[in-house]
Amino acid sequence: MRNFLTILSFFIGFCSLAQPDTDIYVMDLRRSTEGLLVEKHSNISENEGYDNQPSFWTDGESIIYARTVNGQTDIARYYFDSGNTLIISETKQGSEYSPTPMPDGRISSIRLDTSGLQLLYGYTFDGRNEVLVPDLKIGYHAWINSNEIVAFVLGDPATLQIINVKTNEARIVGSNIGRSLHKIPGASSFSYVDKSTTPWTIKSMDPLTGESQKLTAVLEGSEDYCWTPKEEILMASGNELFVWKKGSEWEKFANLSKLGITSITRLSVSPDGKKLAIAAE
């Protein structure tokens, strides 16, 4: 059996000797005259251990996430129509984190081996895999086009890099950043959290020029966020959900304390903007 605590000590996203016991919740996201509403909440993982980092599939009919299976973390896919969960990866020598839809129909995911090796892999749905970036220790990533990712690359210091996975060319475009990286809907730019200022700020960056622009300060104590198709940012603080859009301030639109939720971290919105997934304790 793998030494799970040893695995955790290597992974950038976790600083303690135990990961939080989190689950994936999915809910309807509806717009009303009063603003955003969340309805019909469902715990789709219902699993002991670390179930986290949800990401909707491109058709919106399923969701992929990192799921604890027999003391390790594998890629899982949940289907909304059937309620079934399929385990994609069953890697014997390592665990997968941050599964993300790839432009070519595969899944990209960080794999952390028991040896400490940490690389970005591409996975097919039958479990076949290959290394995508062989020379960099990537903690988090997002696809900005069919060939390039923006990545949080571990090092001293950790850096923000744009990497072409076809040529393995990489450009350092920043440092002192957060883990939440996203392509901005309807734009060629991406967003990231700049931790070099107080408070931390969410910024956009043009991948061609490297020019950045401040969007908004993060909610105090939070760094995870996601975009809606309407170019809004959703973020959580404790068990409350907030929305921001250009020209406005953060506005609270939901409190999930009735579900027994105390802390929300990762968030993901479906491509049609009608569902919200969160990882929460």
Rank of each mutant, 00 (worst) to 15 (best):
Y79C: 00
L120F: 11
V133Q: 06
L17I: 02
D51I: 06
G247A: 05
N3Q: 04
T262C: 06
A142D: 07
Y225D: 04
N164Q: 10
T100C: 01
T265E: 15
L259K: 01
T6F: 07
S204E: 13
S82Y: 08
G174M: 10
A217W: 07
L181F: 12
P199S: 13
L36T: 03
C226I: 07
E34F: 09
V153S: 03
G13N: 10
Q213F: 08
E251H: 13
G178E: 03
V243Y: 05
A254E: 08
F125A: 00
F10I: 01
D59I: 04
L267C: 09
F152C: 00
T114R: 03
Q118V: 10
N84R: 14
K92F: 10
R171D: 14
M235K: 02
E281T: 11
Y79I: 00
V69R: 06
K246W: 08
L112H: 04
R30L: 04
I233M: 07
Q213K: 15
L267E: 08
Y79S: 00
T100M: 08
W227T: 03
F242W: 15
D74Q: 11
T228G: 05
S42L: 15
S222Q: 13
T68K: 02
L117E: 11
S270T: 08
I144V: 14
R266V: 00
G238R: 02
P20N: 08
K195L: 14
V150S: 09
P101S: 06
L160E: 04
L241E: 03
E249L: 02
K195M: 11
E249R: 05
G139I: 00
T68V: 01
K245Y: 14
I162N: 07
L219R: 02
A158T: 12
Y225L: 06
Y65R: 05
S257W: 04
L219K: 03
D156H: 11
